[in-house]
Write a protein that binds this DNA or RNA. Structure first.
Lengths: 203, 203
DNA sequence: ATATTTTTTAATCATTTGATTAAATTTTGC
DNA sequence: GCAAAATTTAATCAAATGATTAAAAAATAT
């Protein structure tokens, strides 16, 4: 049985090609032939290794999603960091990640919207609500006598980090001209977002 | 020449059906037959009134985009309102709009990303940069001795308004359970977002 | 070495899908 | 009313696309 080395070559090549094509074009616009070409191999191989376009997408989707939420878990459950440190690390971590994988956020938002069943199982509602970060938020709000749901601040943080990336094509049309300007803007936000979040949390 | 009444019935029905199908499924996933069915008419009619799927999409896209940015123009160029009033109106206006057309933001973000040529022409970079709102932001930042680009605050405002909507499927999985909860959350944000924005602008 | 299993390819299917055509029906101008 | 123009329909096309098949090639075990 030649079962060991394929994991490292052909199957892996297909997965990489599929990730690239699906993530940049989405499920419907992606052609299985695009993926085969991208992987530099025969179309039939895709159906040999994965059973169908759907299965292939499912695999890419799950890996993308786990990659995306995987980063949060470690950060938000760290009981040794202050709330300010968590916001700071979260901001820098995600700006790093999305600069490296710029298509990921829109891909995930689209996939979640189109409701591919298997996704729901991968998402655990406790991951957010039961996190140490959420407890710290709650405590901080109580201390400051604020009657605002802590969830708002989680939303605000992710909004300010992620939205500029998904709205990048719009920003490039109405306000920026070069790619470097956008990166510069996001690098400014690394420092600004933590300040803004902690300010509205306490003021 | 029977050219007048079609504007009010058949063509309009096709446009409405196309808007509905394209906006909810995107270009690639939408079938021209879906649109014909949705409009309750023969497929050939679509190609009689519009020349192709692309042309039909182009039309929907332009109307969606103009509708979306149309609202800004009036608000941001109003020289009779203060900066605080503008933020307040902008927030309420867009939360109203997106509650009414929940698929619009993701549709527009996707369309802009996939770079349908004709879109660029519709976007005027002055609309944002030369607006009265931008001037007021600039003045306010100068008054407070802040060296931050005013664009950051425009991004923050739109981020906090729009992002929760596009991330709604995720929110529903990890933090909320009923649709009403989401609406409640967004209604809370109507008051909160203006406070947050003005706070970080001045603190 | 050779038989067996695994991997890869080329050719082809069946379906879907955007588009067209030619004829039927309806509307309009006179 | 009727001829011309506009609208609508049914039938069909051609290309694209996801998937399969059968055979070839390569790898592996004994």
């Amino acid at each position: 049985m030649a079962k060991q080395k394929k994991d490292l070559s052909t199957e892996e090549k297909i997965k990489e090609a599929a990730r690239k094509v699906f993530t940049s074009k989405g499920f419907a616009a992606a052609r299985t032939r695009d993926i085969a070409d991208e992987a530099g191999m025969n179309l039939a191989l895709l159906n040999y290794y994965f059973r169908s376009k759907e299965k292939l997408f499912e695999m890419v989707m799950i890996e993308n999603l786990l990659h995306f939420i995987g980063g949060i878990q470690t950060l938000l459950y760290d009981t040794t960091t202050t709330i300010d440190e968590k916001i700071d690390r979260l901001t820098n971590y995600y700006i790093d990640q999305i600069i490296e994988h710029p298509d990921l956020p829109l891909f995930i938002l689209n996939a979640l919207k189109s409701n591919h069943k298997f996704l729901k199982e991968k998402l655990n509602r406790n991951i957010m609500l039961k996190s140490h970060f959420m407890q710290q938020l709650q405590a901080e709000l109580k201390k400051n006598n604020k009657k605002i749901k802590p969830l708002h601040f989680v939303i605000n943080t992710f909004s300010m980090i992620i939205f500029p990336f998904v709205a990048k094509p719009l920003l490039m049309e109405v306000a920026l001209s070069k790619d470097a300007e956008f990166i510069e803007l996001m690098n400014e936000r690394r420092k600004l977002i933590p300040i803004w979040i902690t300010t509205i949390l306490r003021s």
